[in-house]
C-alpha cells in the first residue's frame, strides 16, 4: 500500500502508510489500542469506507492494480476478512454460513457448493467437529468454533488475501492456539495480514511485523529482527512493555 491515509470525519486515523505485504506469508501488525491498526487493515478491502463519513486517500495495489479503482464489491471478494468478534449469521445453518459467499456469487450447483463447504471447513480445521451437524445453527457453536466458521466462510469464496482483525481477542487460549495453527497452514495458499494487540501472537505467526503508533508505521521488519533488535527506540519501549 502506498501513502494511504484514512479519516473518520475530521479525525485522521492513519497517515501516509507505506507497507508491502508478501505473498503466501503472514504479515503482523502490532501497536497499542487506537494506533490505527484496525483502520489500516480495513482500508485493505475497502471496509473502512462503509462507515459513515469515513474516507480514504492513497493507493492500495493488489497484483499491480489499485483496488480503489475497482468496484468495492469485487475487491472484497478477492480480499476476505475475519473480524474481532466471531460474527456467523445466526439464522443460517453451518452449511449455509459457509455457502453464503458463493451463493452471493450466483453459485447454484449443489455439488459445487457441497464441495466448497467441505473444502473450506477442512481448511478452517472445523470439519471434524461439525461434519455431523452441518444443518445446525452457526450460533450453536462455541466462540472458537464460530471464529473458525467465519474463517471457513471467508475462504469459501477463494480470496487471494485474508485479513484478520484481532481474530483471537474474544477467544480463550486453547481456541487461540487452534486459530494460530490454522494461520500457519493457511499461508501456503493465501496471503495473510493479521492485526493483533498480542505481541507474542505476532511473534509466533508472522514472518514480517509492522509496529504502528499514533496512525503511523514506526518500524517494519522481519519479525525476529523486530523483536530482538528493534531499530527504533519507540518500538523497543513498546515490545518491552514500557507503554501500550
Amino acid at each position: 500500500m502506498d501513502k494511504v491515509s484514512a479519516w473518520y470525519g475530521e479525525k485522521l486515523a492513519i497517515q501516509e502508510i507505506v507497507l508491502d505485504f508478501e505473498e503466501h506469508a503472514v504479515t503482523g501488525i502490532i501497536g497499542p489500542s487506537g494506533c490505527g491498526k484496525s483502520t489500516l487493515i480495513r482500508c485493505l478491502n475497502r471496509m473502512h469506507e462503509t462507515i459513515p463519513k469515513a474516507r480514504v486517500e492513497g493507493q492500495v495495489l493488489l497484483d499491480g492494480q489499485d483496488i480503489y479503482g475497482l468496484p468495492a464489491v469485487s475487491v472484497r471478494r478477492r480480499i476476505g476478512m475475519v473480524f474481532q468478534k466471531p460474527n456467523p449469521f445466526p439464522t443460517m445453518s453451518i452449511y449455509e454460513n459457509v455457502a453464503a459467499g458463493l451463493r452471493l456469487n450466483g453459485e447454484r450447483d449443489r455439488k459445487k457448493l457441497d464441495q466448497a463447504v467441505l473444502d473450506s471447513l477442512k481448511q478452517a480445521a472445523l470439519w471434524e467437529e461439525v461434519k455431523d451437524s452441518l444443518d445446525k445453527s452457526g450460533a450453536s457453536l462455541s466462540g472458537g468454533q464460530q471464529q473458525r466458521l467465519c474463517i471457513a466462510r471467508a475462504l469459501a469464496v477463494r480470496p487471494e488475501v485474508l485479513l484478520m482483525d484481532e481474530p483471537c481477542s474474544a477467544l480463550d487460549p486453547i481456541a487461540t492456539a487452534k486459530i494460530e495453527d490454522l494461520i500457519f497452514d493457511l499461508k501456503k495458499d493465501y496471503t495473510l495480514v493479521i492485526v493483533t494487540h498480542n505481541m507474542q501472537q505476532a511473534a509466533r505467526v508472522a514472518e514480517t511485523t509492522a509496529f504502528m503508533y499514533l496512525g503511523k508505521v514506526v518500524e517494519v521488519n522481519n519479525t525476529r529482527e523486530l523483536f530482538e533488535r528493534p531499530r527504533e527506540s519507540l518500538t523497543e519501549s513498546y515490545i518491552t512493555g514500557r507503554f501500550g
Partner: peptide, 17 residues
C-alpha cells in the same frame, strides 16, 4: 449488530444483498 452487516459486506455483498 453492525458486525452482521460487516460479515456480509466482507463477503462481497452489495448493499441490497
Amino acid at each position: 449488530p453492525d458486525s452482521q452487516r460487516e460479515a456480509a459486506l466482507s463477503l462481497g455483498a452489495t448493499r441490497w444483498e
